[in-house]
Amino acid sequence: MPGNLGGVSSSPSAPDVLIRAHGLVKTFPKKHGEAFTAVAGIDFEVRRGEVFGFLGPNGAGKSTTMRMIGCVSPVGGGHLSLFGLDPNTQGPRIRARLGVVPQEDTLDVEMRVRDNMHVYGRYFGLPRAVIRERAARLLDFVQLTDRAEDKVEPLSGGMKRRLTIARALINDPEILILDEPTTGLDPQARHVVWDRLYRLKQQGTTLILTTHYMDEAEQLCDRLVVMDKGRIAAEGAPRELIERYATREVLELRFPLGEQEQAAEKLAGIGERLEPLPDRVLVYADDGEAALTEAHRRGLEPVTALVRRSTLEDVFLHLTGRTLVD
């Protein structure tokens, strides 16, 4: 019987926490002058079997956090533990149980697809036969079986990303960490990746992912934190956050150049809240159609008007006053 390292909890009321962070900090010394704090004291917990997300714009500190979780960057302050182990002293033991998909692919582009799986598996000390069997299964899982004998270099961005995911799974990890898994991919390639991640979720793999796409976070994450400037602005399930920080619907209005400010003034009082952006005005209201009717009644003639459901983007906008993707 395999010795159970994590210790699966039998009590359903105490969920099995794999990662705990309290007041986690990371500071980078600047070449000249003062230090730069990339992660400024964050708290979170990741439970077994869930998909946990870090949503935030570029520079929020997501990758820095992922590197600390991946034990490739020393914890700069506060507390962090994975599987109850300390990353500063038990890095190799922790990494043996993780799968990591870094923000930039780190594939051996001069090697063949199958060899990439092989050399990576050997780092974990897995027997060749086991690697061969898993590589075949995992390449099939990410739909790369027919490219197994090809070099990595000519593969498309989406294929490389999928290969990195397959490679990260070679050691049968307890947690899979994905740093911006679909950034830079075209919509179709993104959907293929999402589909595979969804399947992993179904199989019960614990996933941690960072993203600056709100749709990605909404579709995949059970729970997420919204990160901005090294801090956590909010935490919860996607629907929960939307309910807490946004209205049910949003009315998006565009006006001719130069007329927006006047229009925003006239809109005052409609819905619960107004959010003027450089190119449009957002009206937060539970009934978007009613808000639009009211705007027309006040004599406003927007170039376009759109009523949509609220998203995490609106949550982020409310919390920080900025958009996610600029």
Binding site: P92, P102, T106, D108, Y120, Y123, G125, N171
Partner: peptide, 14 residues
Amino acid sequence: WAGNYWAAVNTPQR
């Protein structure tokens, strides 16, 4: 260029 070191640090390799 090859990135193999960055791959290796994510394994038990120190």
